[in-house]
Design a protein around this nucleic acid. Structure first.
Lengths: 339, 339
DNA sequence: ATGAAAGCGCTAACAT
DNA sequence: ATGTTAGCGCTTTCAT
């Protein structure tokens, strides 16, 4: 591995000149730069970013801490973040907590040694967020909280859960649905609480009541969703529509409906939330509310970079990015007789 | 940020003693270690891994270059690799090529500056592999080729595509299927070529011919699969079974079959390959051949670590890890009349 | 415009 | 067992 000294020697200049010629921030004689560049090429020189980082305090590395890359919601987000980071010359360290809060904590502590310039944090549990962010602050590492919005002294970038859920439910109501089953997931999470609020708002605005009996509060996985769906469909007055609080959960709803010998959307309508990659390829394609991961990634990286460069207003921003309703064939107007 | 000097001063010892007390490789008086540890705690000291890396030549960072994290095959693999790396005290830099060979190349070149200790490489195109691996070798970076097996002077870790495809097709044949549609994906890729070979072997061993007319060679996406399926089902002698060369493609097959008003598995059987997370939750759950990503990840990381530590036999290993058939309700014995 | 030299934080000889 | 010192490769004053 050639070092800057080798380049300097071959080019017949000092190491500082090589450094300057390469950094292009300082004026260097054209002829000198030529010589340096030629030596660089000849020696196949690649600057050592560790040495650079040690010297100037920037590693040009970001870390992203996520609950589980196997949750189909995250791959796109990670991809977009990596792309945005890369565009700015940054590498991305991926810290997958594997759903384990203890590992999440360890990851954060290890990041203090890794000297990353900043961290994009998506926690497993809301209740641990404050501690994790505090840990990063103690380490002097700028952080952005993604997909959650708390008053923790850091920038937050999330989506519009309330509005989205409200739009979904309002749309179903407008199609004549009255018995709408809401599969809520984890009620202790801000995300799902906000989505629930959106649902309730839609019900209230449209004067629908009795929705409580179709509200399942703790649907944590696809199998839960399957069972809940089967159970709901066995009722005398079965729901005519299902709103799964995340698209993944809709898988279980689909199985449950098909398992009961019913069809989508003729017998039952189904909607999800997030618009993960597979949703458009389900049979039938799933109506959902797009979680704007591209813009969330872009915004989060942009905010983080500002913090790293110590500009950005003092007060942390809490940014909410709008998604949009995506109507696909999984929902239809309720049949009169079924009303 | 406290440095080792601060710790040394507070503990009343030299920096080397601090270093030794922390590295636990060298004997240090218990009392001394105590003092050091206390100072570390008091100052909330976290060693600077850049400085360490610059000094001893190991960054304790691996990189993984993958075609696209949004391809549902990769998240589990990435997760497993990250976990194995983490267990060894290594961080993982994720380089997502976004399906773009030019970006893949740039990533690899940038890794030469990042001074990662090793790279797990999964290329977009087989034909670029040799060049990418050569680039890493020039940079003196140990590499392992994952999911592909070429004679490139590096360890390769893959699965058993031939055997898997053969088992799938043999199983379908044993269930009475004769007209089996094989959706081949990209024929220029080793992966799919091997799977194709497995199919042909199964057909040959069982004396089935005429399979060529049900072989679609270039099904690159879910939409392709949908169209191919619709087309095949419109034939007079339509296939009784579909073998999608990757599970993702089975999404398109399912839509195509349902779009034709047929049912799975009563009218048509469907099998995939890989066993991605969603396969078990499709309606009906998909029969497939498990791609052993956990063991591939484990093996690949283990081989890479050996290379990093400069042990491991001189000749590069080409390891093939066996998967296994996973039978789910998407296939059934062909009905007599349909035979 | 270029060179000399210091130093980022750490570890590993080398000395004691 | 512990301290002293050099140096990893780079950038950045400070001179010239």
């Amino acid at each position: 591995m050639a070092t800057i000294k080798d380049v300097a020697k071959l080019a017949g200049v000092s190491t500082s000149t090589v450094s300057r010629a390469l950094s292009r921030k300082v004026r260097v004689e054209d002829a000198t730069r030529e010589k340096v560049l030629e030596a660089v090429a000849r020696l196949d020189y690649h600057p050592n970013s560790l040495a650079r980082g040690l010297r100037d305090g920037f590693t040009r590395t970001l870390a992203m801490v996520i609950p589980e890359i196997t949750n189909p919601f995250f791959p796109k987000l990670v991809q977009c973040v990596e792309k945005r980071a890369d565009e700015r010359g940054y590498s991305l360290i991926l810290c997958d907590s594997g759903g384990n809060p203890a590992r999440e904590k360890r990851h954060i502590e290890e990041l203090r040694s890794d000297r990353v310039d900043g961290v994009l944090f998506i926690g497993i549990n809301d209740c641990d967020c404050a501690e994790r962010i505090a840990l990063l602050r103690d380490g002097g590492i700028p952080a952005v909280l993604v997909n959650r919005s708390f008053d923790l002294g850091v920038d937050c970038v999330t989506n519009d859960n309330r509005r989205g859920a409200r739009e979904i439910v309002a749309r179903l109501i407008r199609m004549g649905h009255r018995r709408i089953a809401c599969l809520v997931m984890a009620p202790e999470s801000q995300h799902y609480r906000q989505r629930l609020e959106g649902c309730l708002q839609a019900f209230a605005e449209n004067g629908i009541d009795g929705y409580q009996q179709y509200l399942v509060p703790d649907v944590r996985g696809i199998d839960d969703a399957y069972r809940a769906t089967r159970r709901l469909l066995e009722r005398r007055e079965r729901p005519t529509a299902f709103f799964a609080f995340v698209d993944i959960i809709a898988f279980g709803v689909y199985s449950g409906i098909y398992g009961n010998g019913l069809s989508i959307p003729d017998d039952v309508s189904v909607a999800g939330f997030d618009d993960i990659a597979t949703s458009q390829h389900m049979s039938p394609p799933l109506t959902t509310y797009k979680h704007p991961v591209e813009r969330i990634a872009e915004t989060a990286v942009e905010r983080l970079m500002r913090r790293i460069q110590r500009r950005a207003g003092a007060e942390p921003a809490r940014i909410e990015i709008r998604g949009r309703l995506i109507v696909r064939p999984s929902i239809r107007r309720v049949r009169e007789c079924a009303g």
